[in-house]
Design a protein around this nucleic acid. Sequence first.
DNA 1: CTATGTGAATGATTTCACAGCT
DNA 2: AGCTGTGAAATCATTCACATAG
Lengths: 206, 206
Amino acid sequence: MRKIAESTVRRLSLYLRFLEDFERQGTETVSSEALATRGGTTSAQVRKDLSFFGSFGKRGFGYSVPELAGRLRDILGLERTYRIVVVGAGNIGAALAHFRGFEQHGFHVVSLYDCDPKKIGQKRNSIPIRDQRRLEADLAKELVDMAIVVTPAGAAQEIVDRLVKAGVKALLNFAPIQLRVPDDVIVKNVSLVLELEALSYGLRNR
Amino acid sequence: MRKIAESTVRRLSLYLRFLEDFERQGTETVSSEALATRGGTTSAQVRKDLSFFGSFGKRGFGYSVPELAGRLRDILGLERTYRIVVVGAGNIGAALAHFRGFEQHGFHVVSLYDCDPKKIGQKRNSIPIRDQRRLEADLAKELVDMAIVVTPAGAAQEIVDRLVKAGVKALLNFAPIQLRVPDDVIVKNVSLVLELEALSYGLRNR
DNA sequence: CTATGTGAATGATTTCACAGCT
DNA sequence: AGCTGTGAAATCATTCACATAG
């Protein structure tokens, strides 16, 4: 498959969110223009994004909402569910455990990991908090697809090395460091301070 | 000022993070190559990013760590602190209240807002939870610079309309909807499901 | 001699505009 | 008649490569 831009993939995910809304409200058909307006982009952009993967619409008509949603789920690899662990059961880790959006979209948080003996054995939203030292043993029994890293900065790289060694190929990193991983491991970073700094820049320069 | 790419601004913020590390460990001097390696980019990219704003290095030598950090803070508008409110005192809102990174970087969370009478009046990490209905009255007394929106999807647009009307010009949105705001209001979206879907796409296509 | 700063070249992404289906 | 799908054009971002300053 031809290399697809990160920005395109992110927009596809956004289009899928809109299609889910349309599905819920029973809308049958949608035009590229309608998706564009909703997502703050242009109809040409929507059509171009889709065209990398096939042609899913009917000319003069638009797209079938359920069909396009299905195609996007297929493209994004969402026809299956994913098993996830969250490493770090602090405030953010616990909040992630309670976040319903993950489950609703097929991302199943199977376990939290922490090193605080007071937390180990507890649950958050019925998800168990396990001893971080058991990570390798647990993953060897049943591998997970993705890990969310919400440890302090100092612990993140070591945890990630262990996750990678255990076979995890996709990471969502909240720690404020740039992780070093092999080429076949995908990392996405979430940095709230960085987002606020981008807002700060924006406020100042306009 | 010439229009600067979003991607450049985000990298500047990243460079600043690295410079803060260097400052802490007392490193005096850094090269574009060192910053590049750290951030997974190239030295040419680093120099180009900086060149949009001036020339801060010494040829044959590199950059003074404290000086470059200062310049970046200045460029990003971080020579001051910002007052922030968090709307929605659910799990994520509470986690944000406990997040030390905000305060450390000059983003001061002054208040949480919620509509649940059981939560109103409580505190999270000594930040008060106030009645959402008081938003306008409070902001009229003392305006905030930014708001973080962590309400359910259904409530987000209405809250944002009120924040905008009250004069807030910068929003960080966690709600899974595309917000409609006037042109002079900046919005950055954080969508964890979108990040996981991007990981899903990545896992499948390599 | 070393590492910056920067035009010029290359590469990537978005927009345009219209032919082609339905 | 209307909206998609798509090459071609335009714009935007990154990389190259080297003159220049310390």
